[in-house]
C-alpha cells in the first residue's frame, strides 16, 4: 500500500522520533511511505479559535495535495479528528465539500490504521517497562479510538500496562485553550499527572504527541521522573 504520512506541526518540530518510528514501522510492514513536504499543519489552532475562513486557507491546499493519496495516516488523534470530522464541517456547503468527505474517509489515526485497516496487532516490539496509557480526547471521543492502542500494547513483550483512574480525563492542553486559560489548563494537567503517578508507571504512553507535550511540560516543571512517550516509539522498539 502507498501510505501518505501526515506529520503535524508539533511532531515535525518537537517530536520527530514519533514520526520516524511510524515510517520505520510502516516500511517494515512492506508499505511505501511518502511524506508531503508541503503539509505543515492541519489548521486546528485557527479552527478552534473561531477563525474558520483563515482555517480554510490552510486546509484547502491540504485537500488538494492529498486528493490522489491512496490512504492517509496521521500521527495524532487530535489532528486526525480535525481532518476526519472537522474538514467536512469546515467545507460544508462549499465546492470542496466532496473533497473534504473523500479525504476524511481515507484518513486514519496511526493506531487505528494498524489495527482496524491492516489488522496488525503484534509488531514484535519489546519494552521492558511499566506504563500507563493516556487517551487523548479527540482520538477517544471524536474518533472512538480506545481499544486499538491497548491491543497493540498488549502484544509488546515485557510491557506492563497499568490503567490510571483518570485515563479518559483531559490533560488540559486543548490547543489555544492552554494559553488563553493557563491556570485551568494547568490544574487539569495536575489531575492527570497525579493519576499517572499513582499507578507507579515509568512511562505515560499516548497516541497524541500534543497531550504528551503538555503532560511532559508539567512533569518537568514538577521535577517528576515520569516520562511521556508516543505509542509509535514504543511499538518501534525491538
Amino acid at each position: 500500500m502507498r501510505v501518505t504520512l501526515f506529520i503535524p506541526c508539533f511532531v515535525d518540530m518537537c517530536f520527530p522520533r514519533a514520526g520516524i518510528a511510524m515510517v520505520e514501522i510502516l516500511e517494515r510492514l512492506g508499505h511505501t511511505v511518502e511524506c508531503p513536504e508541503e503539509i505543515a499543519c492541519c489548521g486546528q489552532p485557527a479552527f478552534n479559535s473561531g477563525y474558520w475562513p483563515e482555517t480554510r486557507a490552510v486546509a484547502l491546499p491540504i485537500l488538494q495535495r492529498l486528493r490522489n493519496a491512496e490512504v492517509v495516516v496521521i500521527a495524532s488523534g487530535s489532528c486526525g479528528a480535525m481532518v476526519k470530522n472537522f474538514y467536512p464541517e469546515l467545507f460544508k456547503e462549499t465546492e470542496h465539500a466532496q473533497a473534504a468527505c473523500d479525504l476524511a474517509s481515507k484518513t486514519f489515526e496511526f493506531s487505528d490504521f494498524l489495527v482496524t485497516k491492516l489488522g496488525v496487532t503484534d509488531l514484535g516490539a519489546r519494552f521492558p517497562h511499566k506504563v500507563t496509557f493516556h487517551d487523548g480526547c479527540h482520538g477517544l471521543r471524536e474518533l472512538g479510538i480506545k481499544k486499538q492502542p491497548r491491543t497493540l500494547l498488549a502484544h509488546v513483550r515485557e510491557l506492563e500496562l497499568v490503567e490510571m483512574t483518570e485515563a479518559e480525563s483531559c490533560c488540559g492542553f486543548g490547543g489555544t485553550f492552554s494559553a488563553k486559560f493557563p491556570m485551568i489548563s494547568t490544574a487539569m494537567g495536575e489531575v492527570k499527572c497525579a493519576s499517572a503517578r499513582e499507578t507507579g508507571a515509568e512511562f505515560i504512553v499516548s497516541n497524541d504527541a500534543s497531550c504528551n507535550m503538555h503532560i511532559q511540560g508539567l512533569l518537568d516543571r514538577q521535577g517528576q521522573p515520569l516520562k511521556t512517550i508516543h505509542l509509535a516509539e514504543v511499538l518501534n522498539t525491538r
Binding site: I7, F10, V11, D12, M13, C14, F15, P16, R17, G19, I20, V23, C35, E37, S178, A179, K180, P182, M183, T186, G189, M213, H214, Q216, G217, L218, D220, R221
Partner: peptide, 22 residues
Amino acid sequence: YVWTQSRELPKVAPQTFKEYWK
C-alpha cells in the same frame, strides 16, 4: 509566559522530522 509560568516548553528537536525526511 502563559505557558512557561507553570510548564516547561518543549525543545525544537536537533533534527526535525522534515529534516530527517529530506
